[in-house]
Design a protein around this nucleic acid. Structure first.
Lengths: 227, 227
DNA sequence: CGCATACAGCTTAGATACAAGCGGCGTGCA
DNA sequence: TGCACGCCGCTTGTATCTAAGCTGTATGCG
């Protein structure tokens, strides 16, 4: 129980505003290039502009919005170039995680590999698309977290949010069996304590993700690529 | 020039608040564990609490403060463990930059290597400690920026800010000749288009930085380390 | 002497009020 | 017709005000 005097007060207004706007951003409710205003959101959520302003600031810090003084908040368009940048950054961080696990000895890798093999994201099973997406996120988050570096873990989470927006924006189908199969392959490489193979499979997986968005990997992510 | 009506209005109050608090955080004016309040800062800067609140929110997002509801803003203590985590993250990102440069061909590496060799951070010359620190920052920023990944560049900047706070907190002497020498060695490896050597020298450089803070590298950053 | 409770002072969270900036549109003039 | 200027509405930036939460202290009781 928390209702103090009146009726509702549950979650702080600022959090509600943040969730609301972020949800709109992620599910495409607020399209790219749209200019939204504090008052607009405040009215919709029946609160004052103050909490909405806080939400806008947070979202700007996360790179979703760009605040123009006296003008409004621009919903930043996501360019294919940025999508590639995000995937490159993910590769850098997840590769770091694998490398660090490797220095902790083969036993550490095997343990994580076994944990990942049991993860739902390796099961092609009966998952909805949304559930698979969530599982995918959890799978990679687990890998990164296993490196035991809280700074990298935080940065990685922010990256995933960014990618979520990209994915939501460019609704393209994803080859589900391919994804789960690649997850399995990556987990197996870890279980076999083969960091180089794991990193290679990770790279292929991320290139596949990018391709699923209709974007080529570029020369770094995908050396086979002509671009 | 920007004075509109009265006297002062130059930079927005929110920015001034942000700069002020961040400066205090970075130069140790606000010690670890100190609980500061909006009103305190607002009074000192002769403005209302609103812009100060914005500054606090930004600084919380950057990981410098932790806001406790109805209590105040806690200046987050920096643990040696976090310092190591930051350096590990830096290694991951800068190594990524080197790798990506490598895929762009030897010519790209040589160009960046030559640029870095001319950077002040390679000159043991007559630099104040503060200037050397700034140069060091510029040196590494240049390397990361050369990878042409804006997402990584942004994340890296945030990391450097965090490290600045760590360094300011733990005032330990830094071996200046060692630093410039290591910068030079790294730049030379790039000029010679040898990415593996460059990454190795980068690693040694970062371990050295960490050691300068009185912290051991741990098994990942420094495999020679027993810890 | 030990503990529970009430109070006082601090703090923030959120709402409201006010001032100023920017852009679009319409009007008037050449 | 074309252009310049000025007004109007929308937006944010900042200040101020009110309500409420948390902590520490002091007080009273057992």
């Amino acid at each position: 129980m928390s209702p103090a005097t009146a009726a509702e007060a549950g979650p702080p207004a600022a959090d509600r505003a943040y969730q609301h706007v972020k949800a709109g951003l992620l599910d495409g409710g607020f399209p790219d290039g749209h200019l939204l205003s504090e008052g607009e959101i405040a009215t919709a959520l029946e609160m004052s502009r103050t909490p909405v302003r806080e939400a806008f600031l947070r979202l700007q810090a996360e790179g979703f919005l760009r605040l123009y003084p006296k003008r409004g908040a621009l919903v930043l368009p996501v360019t294919p170039l940025e999508a590639r940048a995000v995937l490159e950054a993910r590769l850098a961080m997840e590769s770091f995680a694998i490398d660090k696990l490797a220095t902790e000895g083969p036993e550490a890798m095997r343990t994580v590999g076994r944990e990942l093999l049991e993860h739902p994201a390796c099961d092609a099973g009966e998952l909805t698309d949304a559930a698979l997406h969530e599982a995918d996120r959890g799978f990679h988050a687990h890998l990164v977290a296993a490196a035991g570096n809280p700074v990298v873990t935080d940065l990685y989470t922010a990256l995933r949010d960014k990618q979520m927006r990209i994915t939501a924006t460019a609704r393209t189908h994803t080859a589900r069996p391919r994804i789960t199969h690649q997850h399995g392959g990556l987990a197996e490489a870890l279980r076999d304590a083969d960091p180089e193979l794991a990193k290679q499979r990770l790279r292929e997986h991320l290139v596949g993700t990018l391709r699923g968005l209709g974007i080529s990997g570029g020369s770094y992510l995908d050396p086979e690529d002509e671009g």
